[in-house]
Design a protein around this nucleic acid. Structure first.
Length: 502
RNA sequence: UCCCCGAUAGCUCAAUUGGUAGAGCGAGCGGCUGUUAACCGCUAGGUUACUGGUUCGAGUCCAGUUCGGGGAGCCA
């Protein structure tokens, strides 16, 4: 009986005969030689079966196995440079658990809609496999960061009784005949628990019913929200800085192969060290209206235009080459793939050319007092190679519970953290208003009925202290760390506007 | 709510601009002793999203509908 092992352990078994159980990822046959690429959840392994007089039947059976057939393979582990990963299995036995025919996700390209409809199977693909492993590590790093520092985990409710601000972005559900809402944040509850434990955090799904169909939006996403007592804005900033550094460090330490598989340059992440950049909202307004931002936009626009011209030329050339007489089939196919990729990029670059002038105008005419738009955040982040704290937004465009700045009452003691490379906001944070009268005043300004908030106001009546915290969006953080264009790949089963299956 | 783009074989895409719907992958069969999304040959596979219109003739043009992609607003 051969030892059973997994692919990630193979290097410890060189020269031994072992059994792997897994799924057929791909196979190639070369006459009397058969390559089975097996995945077992821990990695991929090339398995080689040589046809002999004795194993002819097994060879035939194995050769016909379809993608994703489940099987157990036994063979001798050997080092071979030609094998992906450096190790391969010289097979002596193949046991079929289930022979599969017609697995929908094939080796060639698929469209987004098709893949999303087959998300339950798409998860088996290498890129998705890598992303989920990074997500798992990131989530563990989040929990460990807070647990190691004496934070107490507080699970906050998902049914929320009051609409509060932005009722149109809440999902309403029927709660024994009463309308209640799926939580957008656990923050108010975490503040209550804070006064019991001094340092707390909540971590769970949150829900936004925004009618946004973009790569930056999900209707269900995960957020971690720490809250600390006896703290002012600078303490929250310091915590956020340590936290983000710890997350990146951990992923770099444990998931380098996965990052590599995703084509993510680790150097961009290795740069993520303290201190991050700090800008006040007022400085950002100046920046947006100033020369540097204009130059950045103009450079981006020029680059996009050049690229559009380049791509158009490339596509034409490749199309001519493909249509030329006597082109080999494989060559034509390769060209077709390249043309497709070029067209996709062309569409993106053309979109950029269309949008940038509008973004420039928005930035140039930006007025003090409004919230930063997506394009504003992007350009600020593009100007920096490390995350940027934007602090002290106008109080009027932020939530009622944020504490006003003592020196400049127009602004709140709050910040957003913008991830670099144009990824934008991953953290929203503030020092909380700890004074009862000031809090009531802010609620009145926002037109909020204090009745359902009496429990929250109690926190200011009985032992109020300066405190604050932040919320980090897990999916946006994963997208940034993995270098992904779209949030839908960062969560196993994304929920988006108009998409609920599987 | 608004703007742009798209829907052709199971999948990814072609169709010389209104004139006989094709290719690759996948599936099936055959060949090949080191493949790297292998390669080569053969076979099967279609109500061109739906409804209507223009035309001798519509995948192609027009109108509407549905679904999807991207973006704006708004948000995290």
């Amino acid at each position: 009986m051969a030892t059973e092992t997994t692919i990630c352990e193979l290097s410890n078994h060189v020269g031994q005969t072992v059994t792997l159980r897994g799924w057929l990822y791909n196979s190639r046959s070369s006459g009397k030689l058969l390559f089975l690429i097996v995945r077992d959840g821990t990695g991929l392994c090339q398995c080689v079966l040589e046809k002999t007089d004795a194993n002819a039947e097994m060879f035939q059976q194995a050769r016909r196995l379809g993608q994703e057939s489940s099987l157990a393979v036994t063979g001798c582990v050997r080092v071979d440079e030609r094998a992906p990963g450096g190790h391969e299995l010289a097979l002596s036995d193949v046991q079929v658990i289930q022979a599969v025919e017609g697995y929908p996700i094939t080796k060639k390209a698929h469209g987004v809609d098709f893949l999303m409809k087959h998300r339950h199977l798409w998860l088996r693909s290498r890129r998705q496999w890598a992303i989920m492993r990074i997500r798992s590590t990131l989530v563990d790093a989040i929990r460990r960061f807070f647990n190691d520092r004496g934070f107490v985990l507080i699970d906050t409710p998902i049914f929320a009784p009051s609409a509060g601000e932005g009722a149109q972005t809440l999902f309403e559900v029927d709660y024994y005949g009463e309308p209640v809402y799926l939580a957008q944040t656990g923050q108010l509850y975490v503040e209550a628990a804070l006064m019991a434990h001094r340092k707390v955090y909540c971590f769970g799904p949150t829900f936004r019913a925004e009618k946004s169909k973009t790569r930056r939006h999900l209707t269900e996403f995960w957020m971690v929200e720490p809250e600390i007592a006896f703290a002012e804005l600078d303490d929250v900033i310091a915590l956020a800085e340590d936290f983000v550094c710890a997350l990146v460090e951990r992923v770099l330490a444990e998931r380098r192969p996965e990052l590599e598989l995703l084509g993510r340059d680790p150097a961009a992440l290795e740069r993520i060290t303290k201190p991050f950049y700090r800008l006040t909202y007022g400085e950002v307004v100046e920046l947006l209206r100033g020369e540097r931002v204009r130059a950045r936009f103009e450079a981006d626009l020029a680059a996009a235009r050049t690229r559009v011209a380049e791509l158009q030329r490339t596509i034409k050339e490749k199309e001519a080459e493909r249509a030329a007489p006597g082109v080999k089939k494989w060559k034509a196919e390769k060209l077709a793939r390249e043309i497709l990729a070029a067209r996709e990029e062309l569409a993106e670059q053309e979109e950029a050319v269309r949008n940038i002038p509008h973004h420039m105008e928005l930035a140039a005419n930006f007025e003090w007092g409004s919230d930063l738009g997506g394009s504003d955040e992007t350009v600020i982040a593009r100007l920096h190679d490390r995350p940027v704290f934007v602090t002290h937004y106008p109080a009027a465009c932020k939530a009622f519970y944020m504490k006003r700045n003592a020196d400049d009452p127009r602004v709140a003691n709050c910040f957003d953290l913008l991830a670099p490379e144009g990824y934008g906001e991953i953290i929203g944070a503030s020092q909380r208003e700890d004074d009862l009268a000031a809090l009531l005043e802010r609620m009145e300004e926002e037109g909020l009925d204090p009745t359902p908030y009496q429990w929250y106001l109690d926190l200011r009546r009985y032992g109020t202290v300066p405190h604050g915290g932040f919320g980090l969006g897990v999916e946006r953080t994963i997208a940034w760390i993995c270098g992904l264009k779209h949030l839908r790949e960062t969560i196993p089963f994304p929920r988006m506007m108009g998409r609920l299956y599987p």
